Amino acid sequence: MTVSLPAPLSPGHALVTGGAGFIGSHLVDGLLADGWQVTVIDNFDPYYPEAIKRRHIAAHLAHPRYRLVEADIRDGAKLDALLNDQYTVIVHLAAKAGVRNSLTDPLGYQMTNVIGTQNLLSFAQAHGIKPFVFGSSSSVYGNCPRLPWREADLGLTPINPYASTKLANEQMGYVYAETFGLRFVALRFFTVFGERQRPDLAIHKFARLMQAGKTIPVYGDGSSERDFTYWGDIVAGVRAAMAFASDPAQAKYEVFNLGNNRTIGLLDMIRLMEKVLNVDAKIDWQDWQPGEMRRTWADIGKSQALLGYEPATDFETGLRRFADWLAVQP
């Protein structure tokens, strides 16, 4: 059976939440370069230093087709008051991120990720904005034993509060697609890495510790594996999803994996980092952490077929680009 890909999407006006973050700022780079008007919502959450996000968007601020709205997505009334333009598509990337922090602040994650997403869905419904692209997470699969993970897997059981909020968001999106006519696409990101990566994520954290001659914390026996995906491939997938959600010929609700369809062991990752950074790692072995997933692995067949998604950057190439970027950071 021949599957038609989404129709090409002409530049319009994108509303991007979390547009000062890692993935969001890269997405905005590309949209502005391609002629889009972009409105970004970001509250510069103190999860990591605000100055980092400010650097991400420094070049955007002077752009005539860019607008920054500093607001919290939990405040629906403020969003309604400040967002008064006509938007072609919503790309919702804002969230409280991080598995471990969600274990100690589950209510905070519910408020931002669930209530915040509810506010954005309500805003889209009220303003007649049908295309809605949502940044979900591979963590919704929990420790699903069926590998690689497929979007059709049922009975998903997240093992941390962060993941539970993402799965709830996907279900909310289904309600708004079925009941209110939105065109909702959820993208399950698999371990995104590269330039501008959050400083708490393993590759960034390990690199700085290794370069400083400090130990790196390794949890469990080192057997965990991740499906690492370079940010450029993720952004390409987001752009394809924007076209999918905007095309009436496509399904009004879909979930897609955006990964690399291959896994890399934690110890292999560390050895490659040693090679790229030209330093030796000093490992501090620690117990397994609650809520941590032992393995992630994406089946990307559906994304390839319906989005034309094809990851183009292998792990070592992406790691070298990250190292070059890190070398010039403060």
Rank of each mutant, 00 (worst) to 15 (best):
G301I: 05
G237Y: 11
L107T: 12
I23H: 06
V89W: 05
L27G: 01
L103C: 13
V16I: 08
A327W: 02
D299S: 15
G30D: 14
T88K: 06
T112F: 02
Y162E: 08
Y174H: 10
G318I: 06
V140W: 08
T165S: 14
F123H: 04
I216D: 00
R196I: 02
L306E: 13
G108A: 04
L93S: 09
I129G: 07
D233P: 05
L68E: 05
P145A: 08
R226M: 10
K205M: 14
L32I: 05
A207F: 09
L9Y: 04
M273G: 00
W231E: 09
P106A: 08
R198C: 08
T117M: 10
P46Q: 06
S4M: 14
G21A: 05
A305G: 03
A7T: 12
D247L: 09
F206V: 05
K205D: 15
R320M: 12
M210Q: 01
E225I: 10
P11Q: 02
A94F: 02
D299A: 11
K252W: 08
Y174T: 14
L272E: 12
E310L: 11
G155K: 11
P8W: 01
T157V: 14
P6H: 02
V28D: 03
A207K: 05
Y109D: 15
L5R: 04
G181L: 03
T112M: 10
D233V: 08
G116F: 10
Y230R: 12
A251G: 11
I234A: 05
M273E: 04
L32A: 02
C144S: 03
I283T: 04
A33C: 12
R320S: 12
P148R: 01
W149F: 13
A240K: 14
P248K: 03
Q171T: 14
I73T: 09
Q329M: 06
E254G: 00
K53G: 11
T165G: 04
A177L: 06
E178G: 02
P145V: 09
S137Y: 05
L267I: 15
A59P: 02
A126F: 00
R183L: 03
E316H: 07
E225M: 14
I283W: 06
A77Q: 15
L83A: 05
S246T: 06
G76Q: 04
E292R: 09
N119Y: 07
I270W: 02
T229A: 03
R295C: 15
T117G: 07
G173Q: 08
D29G: 01
I300F: 10
A241K: 04
V140T: 12
T317A: 07
L182Q: 01
R146L: 13
N119P: 01
T117I: 06
L61T: 01
L120Y: 00
P11M: 01
K130L: 13
D280I: 07
W231H: 12
F123R: 06
W285G: 10
A298N: 09
T88E: 04
K302G: 00
R54V: 02
K252C: 13
R321F: 03
F22C: 09
S224N: 13
A20L: 04
A323N: 11
K275L: 10
Y162D: 10
D324Q: 15
A186W: 01
H56M: 08
T215C: 07
D221P: 12
T263W: 11
T229Q: 00
L27A: 03
G18S: 00
N169L: 04
L201F: 15
G135Y: 10
S122R: 12
G318E: 00
M269Q: 15
Y219L: 09
S138D: 13
